[in-house]
Amino acid sequence: MGSLTASLPNSHRGPIRTIEWEMLDKRKFYPYSMMSSFTVRCFLYPLTLVRTRLQVQHHNAIYSGTFDAFRKILQHEGVKGLYRGFWISCFQVVSGICYVSTYEGVRHILDKNGVTNPKIKSSVGGSCASLVGQTIIVPFDVISQHLMILGLVSKQGKSVSANPLAIKTEGRTKSQITWDVTRTIYYRDGFRGFYRGYLASLANYVPSSAAWWTFYQLYQEILTTLPPLLPHTGTQCVAAVMSGCTTSIITNPMDLVRTRVQVQRRSIPETIRFLWATERLRIFSKGLTARMTSSSIYSLAIILGYESVKKMSVLPAYKDEVRW
């Protein structure tokens, strides 16, 4: 659609539903994207932390569910407990820019080579974007997950052993603890320690990203055939939430494996065997509520920001045709 629309004179162009890469002013797009991504991360990071802790715990040894986890973290650790590892995870903003650039760039290349099916472009673009994004972010993900699980408290209010690196936390600042985690990982496993769970991340996030963008495109197409109850951006947000829920259900077991591999230092086959022996069919539901909640809210916030940023960054020649 992008190349065809761009080639037509203004008087013959119809409303633009999908803003393509060549329609964007990159000088506006990149800074707006970084601000949007950081804002979303600030508000929604606690959901990621809670999901990680639910996935790491054995059965329901610490938290009985998502809301119980929030309550206990606030009770025993305060608000700052919900933001353990936040600053190191902020490097994901850089990863996010690379992700978006890859996604849009691959879509653009496919379009130039005659691939016009939007679902195919979304699927391939999402896969490539996730491959690039995970290669950049996995080291920071490994560090932040170790930070997330520090300070776990049992149902009896006692500290529990969830510190596989044996990091000392008492009397230490956040920066000192972060440095200790980073240094210990390197001393134990070398540089490859920062890519622990990399294959598990790819196995989870590449198909997850491909599925998310495919379902997002599909749900948009379905919703646009219905009577228009919302503005176009509202329809995109609804499609994003539906896509987030669908993808979470499909990929939850692999996300559980990824988290356990990165934190508990087992191989992928060992982790799968251990999870099946201890959790059985709970692998399909463990942390799922937190993940669906997190994914739905993230999808809504990210797409609201992403699509709004694209519309604000569109080149002047296309502004009148953009649908808000």
Rank of each mutant, 00 (worst) to 15 (best):
V238R: 01
T182A: 14
N10K: 11
V100S: 06
D68Q: 06
F38C: 11
S248V: 02
M292F: 02
S11F: 04
K26S: 12
N113Y: 12
T289W: 09
K80N: 07
S208Q: 15
T39I: 12
G2M: 04
Y45K: 04
L152H: 08
L223N: 02
F284E: 07
R172K: 15
L147A: 13
S299V: 01
S33P: 01
R258C: 10
G126S: 07
T235V: 08
R260V: 07
I222T: 07
S95R: 06
G133M: 07
E170I: 14
R280M: 05
T235R: 04
N117D: 15
V314F: 09
Q176K: 10
I222F: 09
Q236C: 07
T116F: 01
C245I: 15
T246L: 09
R265I: 10
L199D: 00
K119A: 09
K168G: 10
F29N: 08
R282H: 13
A203I: 10
P228S: 11
F91M: 15
L110D: 05
V132M: 15
R183M: 12
V50D: 00
W213V: 01
Y205N: 10
S64F: 10
S3P: 05
A69I: 04
W276L: 15
G234I: 02
R172T: 07
K119I: 15
C237W: 02
A6W: 03
L47S: 05
M312R: 06
K80R: 13
I302F: 14
Y216G: 09
R183V: 12
L82G: 05
A317T: 14
Y318T: 02
L281S: 15
P139D: 12
Q92T: 14
V93A: 11
A240F: 01
F91E: 02
F91D: 05
D180N: 12
P118L: 08
G193F: 08
E104N: 13
S161M: 01
Y99P: 01
S296M: 06
I250P: 05
G78Y: 02
R71Y: 09
W87K: 06
